[in-house]
Design a protein around this nucleic acid. Structure first.
Lengths: 129, 129
DNA sequence: GCAGTACTACGAACCCGTTCGTAATGGCAA
DNA sequence: TTGCCATTACGAACGGGTTCGTAGTACTGC
């Protein structure tokens, strides 16, 4: 047993985690204000998810204040790695190049993005050599 | 309305589609033999999925033979593109470079894979200029 | 023609993600 | 202190993905 394997977040959980990763610790109200712009969900809905995620251990609650403050406890990197790895395995038999190919085919990508990816490749190459 | 938007396959459906994409038209028995090596599922379970997918339109059935032959009807490229695009949007705010970074971080990648990705980048660059 | 076998069809049930409605709690103002 | 408002807590319900058990159907050998 070597890694604590963060449970795979459901779609809605991921949306919420994303907000917490980006904004840092936030109250239910803050999360709700942001997420409701893109997803139809009520205040208590967000709260419910935060509670579930608290039980699962993917977020932590600080109840010092009246309005409880939640923060992401699940590691951003590890979670994202797992999500991509899972899809890569299930849809592309583990082939990274196939994954990249379809990722680029799906949307227009700026020159900066492409250059950035090249840098990532260089760095990865140097590391693993 | 321009694209027929292939419905997003569920995890198990994707496993089956993958087999059909790779092997071509197959019978229930053949699919079951392959998938049961990695996933605990019975014969009728596979059949059930094939039936559901037939209704959804992602596979087609040929009942000329006694053992019906199923073939993938859903486009491989389009489906994969959608899956990656969806994850990229939900987990990485649409950033292709972040996606690639975490994909590579998740597993060891051979030199050939990396070179292949570079080729893909080159091709994509040329096309979009 | 009859029994046995292999395959397909159908329906029920279960689990989990998701959502909502309502009750309980605690602080603030008058 | 009392009443109002914001916030949290809890439970129920709905839907979809997944699985399994059983019934129906067609072919094969005797």
């Amino acid at each position: 047993m070597k890694n604590e394997s963060p449970p795979k977040p459901t779609p809605t959980e991921l949306s919420i985690l994303g907000i917490l990763w980006e904004r840092g610790p936030s109250t239910v109200r803050e999360v709700h204000e942001i997420i409701s712009k893109t997803k139809p969900i009520g205040y208590t809905g967000v709260l419910k998810f935060l509670q579930i995620m608290t039980v699962k251990g993917s977020v932590r609650r600080n109840s010092d204040q009246r309005a409880h403050v939640y923060e992401a406890f699940q590691q951003e990197d590890k979670t994202k790695r797992q999500l991509v790895g899972d899809l890569m395995q299930r849809a592309f038999s583990g082939s990274a190049s196939e994954l990249v190919m379809h990722a680029l085919a799906g949307k227009r990508t700026s020159q900066e993005e492409i250059d950035e990816i090249r840098r990532i490749l260089d760095a990865h190459e140097r590391k693993s050599t």
